[in-house]
Nucleic acid binder design. Structure first.
Length: 576
DNA sequence: CTAGGGTTAG
């Protein structure tokens, strides 16, 4: 074997820097350091191998008289994955200043990886301009990377524009766009991409399926999810690929179908920690504490190591079910047995758990002893559990802390006002009203979704933008009058704010969604509503009546939990 | 083996 071939073969099998240094020494000794393929191989190992050494790569690079594109690429790639991704951009600029080599598609791919990681949107624009100048704007892989880079920098609209302009989009490009929309929370858009994909004649693969299922889960688009389930099963994705099963479990759980989630879980041949966690979290948000705990134990028996999400699921389950002792036990065990540091969400579950169980003093003490006592989240949690138990005193403590950190919002004022109202303290109610008015505190716009015949329909308060609006309002009036004859009284407790702000008497979004569901789905079909806020007392009560009057199961996914309404009763026992 | 895509929590 002649020299260069020998070195290339040696480098092929190289797996450590020690070994590499020895090979390098031989290369120098025998005068092969100027050989382009040998130096590229040396460089690429140092710059990009996990066992490599970026500093050594730079050293090798600086010894090159006339670095070729491949050399630059190796170094740019290595830098983009290192601790300082922006170095990749400086290298790129240096490359452009020199005349010895031009960038290729690989160069831009690595450069864009760096832009995505560096969270530097202006750098994306710079790279974008270079790509256009160098004539790579139609390259599908470069384009896909650019989409990702913009999306990871929060410029989803720019990502969308770049994507639309890729002339020959392949499967990876489409899948990438779907996952970018998912990450940006634009789940509607993710599902719309699917329609465009079908028209383009491309077959979906398991990546597509996973992305779409995630968006279905977020939207509560059960019908869409079921279709994808069928498709995944028919194409063998579900058997072959653990990601697909995991995404299905999550989709079914988030769409209120724990039974289906469970059956997917039971049918999986291989399970990873996502599988277990998705199931545990699913049980948690539905408040099935005993099952969540026993599943957690099975997970341990199966030798799968729990992580912070496993514990989050467990704690949610405990808090929704009042298992305070268990919750405390798991909260401590996650640190002592698994060295997992509880984060804000875990602390939130604990405050919620103490609070729901009526242990408001413990909740307060817990917040004070936590590392997150300066975060509004925990105080807001204390406030909302104070409402459950009608504690004026604790509610005032909570809002005072929120005010001190200038974090109080309209929702907080509504909560405290509810507490005052329950305590028949009309002055308190008036004070809250005044506070909102004087300080111009903004309300979070509420919305609800329902999926009808595979289409996600979104409603806001008093929405009249739908083609069926007239019908919807008629149906609601009918519902209310029938409910009234059965004893429903409009308490309108949380409505004062809405009336006050909008000067309207419009219906809340979930009731509009429910009315449309009743109108457009066959008798006996259960309805799933997804909301971004909590259900108000009035809607909760009306929905109970609706489930009875129309003999429908109505599932409402709240910001934090599920309400299963059936025959006039809600699974939360009016305790949320 | 020089490139681009995936799930839970937030």
């Amino acid at each position: 074997m002649c020299g260069a071939a020998k070195f290339l073969s040696l480098l092929q099998g190289c797996n450590s820097m020690d070994r590499l240094r020895k090979i390098h020494a031989q290369v120098l000794l025998q005068g092969y350091h100027g050989h382009p393929a040998v130096s590229a191989k040396l460089l690429s190992f140092c710059a990009t191998s996990t066992a490599g050494d970026l500093a050594y790569a730079r050293l090798l690079f600086s010894g090159l008289l006339c670095p070729a594109t491949d050399h630059w690429n190796a170094l740019i790639r290595g830098s983009s994955r290192g601790p300082a991704p922006l170095d990749a951009l400086s290298l790129y600029n240096a490359m452009m200043r020199g005349a010895s080599s031009r960038p290729d598609a690989f160069t831009f791919s690595f450069l864009l990886k760096a832009c995505a990681l560096a969270k530097a949107e202006p750098k994306c624009r710079e790279a974008h301009a270079s790509i256009v100048r160098s004539g790579f704007s139609s390259h599908v892989i470069v384009g896909t990377n650019l989409v990702r880079a913009y999306a990871d920098n929060g410029s989803i609209d720019e990502a969308r524009r770049v994507f639309d302009e890729i002339p020959d989009k392949d499967l990876v490009a489409w899948n990438s766009m779907i996952s970018c929309f998912c990450h940006a929370g634009l789940h509607d858009d993710a599902l719309k991409v699917y329609d465009r994909m079908r028209h383009s004649g491309l077959a979906l693969d398991d990546f597509t399926v996973v992305g779409l299922l995630s968006s279905c889960a977020h939207l509560g688009a059960l019908g869409f999810g079921v279709r994808i389930h069928k498709f995944a099963e028919e194409n063998g994705f579900l058997r072959r690929n653990v990601f697909v099963g995991n995404a299905l479990i999550d989709m079914y759980a988030k769409c209120g179908r724990l039974d289906e989630a469970r059956s997917v879980f039971d049918g999986m041949r291989r399970r990873d920690n996502f599988t277990w966690n998705s199931m545990i979290v699913g049980l948690g948000i539905h408040g099935h504490a005993d099952e969540a705990i026993s599943l957690f134990q099975r997970m341990l028996m199966a030798g799968v190591r729990p992580n912070s999400i496993s514990f989050l699921g467990l704690l949610m389950a405990c808090s929704h079910h009042g298992l305070v002792e268990n919750g405390i036990k798991y909260f401590h065990r996650m640190g002592s047995a698994y060295s997992i540091k509880p984060d804000l969400k875990h602390y939130g579950c604990m405050v919620d758990m103490y609070g729901r169980a009526g242990k408001l003093d413990e909740a307060l003490e817990f917040i004070h002893s936590s590392p997150f006592k300066d975060d509004p989240v925990l105080w807001r949690m204390l406030l909302s559990t104070s409402r459950i138990h009608g504690s004026v005193e604790m509610g005032e403590i909570a809002i005072q802390n929120l005010i001190e950190m200038s974090a109080h919002n309209a929702g907080d004022c509504v909560l405290l006002s509810d507490i005052y109202e329950h305590a028949r303290d009309s002055q308190g109610v008036a004070r809250m009203r005044k506070m909102v008015k004087d300080q111009g505190i903004k309300t979070t716009p509420g919305w609800s979704w329902i999926e009808i015949h595979g289409e996600v329909r979104k409603f806001v308060v008093g929405d009249t933008s739908h083609a069926e609006s007239e019908e919807i309002y008629k149906k609601l009036e009918e519902m209310i009058s029938r409910a009234a004859s059965l004893g429903y009284a409009t308490e309108r407790s949380a409505d004062w704010l809405k009336n006050f702000v909008d000067s309207t008497t419009d219906y809340h979004s979930e009731m509009l969604a429910i009315a449309l569901g009743l109108l457009r789905t066959p008798k006996g079909t259960s309805l799933l509503i997804v909301k971004n806020l909590r259900v108000c007392k009035d809607c909760h009560s009306l929905t109970k009546y609706a489930s009875r009057i129309y003999d429908r199961e109505i599932v409402v996914r709240d910001r934090v939990r599920f309400h299963h309404f059936k025959e006039g009763i809600c699974s939360c026992n009016d305790y949320w």
